[in-house]
Amino acid sequence: MKPAAFDYHAPRTLEEALDLLAAYGEDAKPLAGGQSLVPTMNFRLAQPEALVDLNEIDGLFFIREGERGLHCGAMTRQRAVERSGMARKAAPLLHEAMPHIAHAQIRNRGTIGGSLAHADPAAELPAVAIALDASMYVRSVTDARWVPARDFYVGLFATAMEPGELLVEVAFPQPRPRSGWAFEEVARQHGNYAMCGAAAVVELSEEGAIKKARLVFLSVGEGPVAADQAAAMLVGERPTATALRAAAEEAATKEIDPVGDIHAGPAYRRHLARVIGERVLTRATARANEAPLL
């Protein structure tokens, strides 16, 4: 379990990093927290020719409020996001999801951008990013663009980024009035990969009907799965327990196609999606409403 030999670069500026990534193309991997990449290299499942270590680039570590809401530099440690009062206020769903990411020791090292860019289907942050309509700022030597989270994830461990591109920042819009949120997952052990998880955002109209809903699952597909039909079913409805259960049922039976692994078969994952889907919609609605369900 020793990695194969590789070149190691530790640029001090983003421009240097982008130059290196451009030069190596697909043969280099950016190194963020290393919590997924390094074990993969130790197993020799990944044998990049070079690592471009981003840990010396000061400009990638920040949490601030900006025009797109809460902006986080890609190298911001997950633990820093978790403990940030600003993030808690500006993106409470993000805050609620953070403790589910592995263990505190891993979050001390793991970064928000590393997890978002790694696109592990069991990861929490991609699902949260989609539920919050976050957008990703992607840079290369020649280009800079904002990509909506929904368009960022294109498959198993796959994103819309091209070789030479780097995720440098993510922005989460401010919560809407009368909206609520919830995150939940079921893992075999605290800190382990989720067998199923879900993030929900529910926005209510002044009359108390559902104005907008988001329900995004993790660990039940090749990436984060947004249950759009279920969300659409809820729009205009009163958020009754029956309606929320029906939406979760719709999502679990029609909108996900989970594959099994040694920990959870497809049927069990679907069952969990139903259970968790209902739980997060219920809690998100309660938070939006700050009143008992009808």
Binding site: F43, R188, Q189, H190, G191, N192, I262, H263
Partner: peptide, 28 residues
């Protein structure tokens, strides 16, 4: 409740790491 070695029909072990072979932790 946690530990099981999953061999496939070819005798390959599908969970030869502590990522997939679950040892109970203090919280369990």
């Amino acid at each position: 409740f946690y530990e099981q070695l999953h061999f496939d029909e070819n005798g390959a072990l599908r969970n030869a790491s502590l990522m997939d072979y679950l040892l109970p932790t203090a919280s369990d």
